[in-house]
Amino acid sequence: MMRSDVAARSSRPAPAPVFTRVARWSPRSRSQRQPRRRRLSWLWRLPVRLLLLLLLTIEIYPLIWLLLSSFKEDAEFSLRPLWALPAGLHWQNYVEAWTTGNIGLYFLNSVLTVFPALALILALSVPAGFALEVMRWRGRNLVLLLFLAGIMVPLQILLLPLFTIYFHLDLIDTRWALIITYTGFGLPLTVFLMAGYFKAIPRELLEAAILDGAGLVQLFLRVAVPLVSNGLVTVALVQFFFLWNDLLFSLTFISNDQLRTIQTGLLNFTGQYGQVAWGPTFAAVSLAVFPTLLLYLLLNQRVIKGLTAGALKG
């Protein structure tokens, strides 16, 4: 596609630069900047600055609005403009959402399904990744491929058979149904990413450990796992977000209100109050959004890296 274009360009007179800024590729070329350009650049900067401002507004304002609205009394929504600041901090919304709205219970349910599943996923996939990348055996690639196949499968295909299995095992409406499903569903990507991390360990390092007399258990626990611990945290984070945000499985396997997770609980929240009580609804949404957001803000680079790695592998 690009074969002739670059070459062809050279024989033609240079076209007038459309985006002068674009032409400056890397910070390295900054030093070559000319004063004429600097004057021009202010004019060019303005629209881009405005664009940037608009972008950040679109990204962030909805959340600010959410937070502010969660502190409003119900009357404020109809009497004052929606974008007005709350008259006071109406904490009652949060109390109502947490207790009568059951968000506290849903939160607990989410914690009690997601974290056991997360622990199981790691406990299963770290050894599997180790075996697939470090150990030597025939069929290794086939098994890796088998795990890979699971990454792209639409969840919908799994629903009915799993429902049938859980129905016969009396697991419908138990946390186990979710824990088991989450674990199995989280495995392919995690195994695949873990295998990648183990692959990155220099082979010589492992060989040296064996020559020094390390057995397999020591090699795994003392040498290999500590070396991938960074990756381990990243994968755990990625899976945490996937599982914490799951709606489909929890909707399918849980109908008992006492066992609902935060997502299904939130889905039904509107129904409980009708559409009249905006305050508690905003408070409930805030309770669901801000812990995730906080986790993200604390660990953002890691989360970004993990999630995009998952996409590229998939």
């Binding site: 299963l124 699971g150 799994l158 009915l160 058979p161 799993l162």
Partner: peptide, 16 residues
Amino acid sequence: LVGPALLVYSGVVLLP
């Protein structure tokens, strides 16, 4: 090492 993961994965994803 690989058996448990493969087993759970097969049961929850491949078999369905």
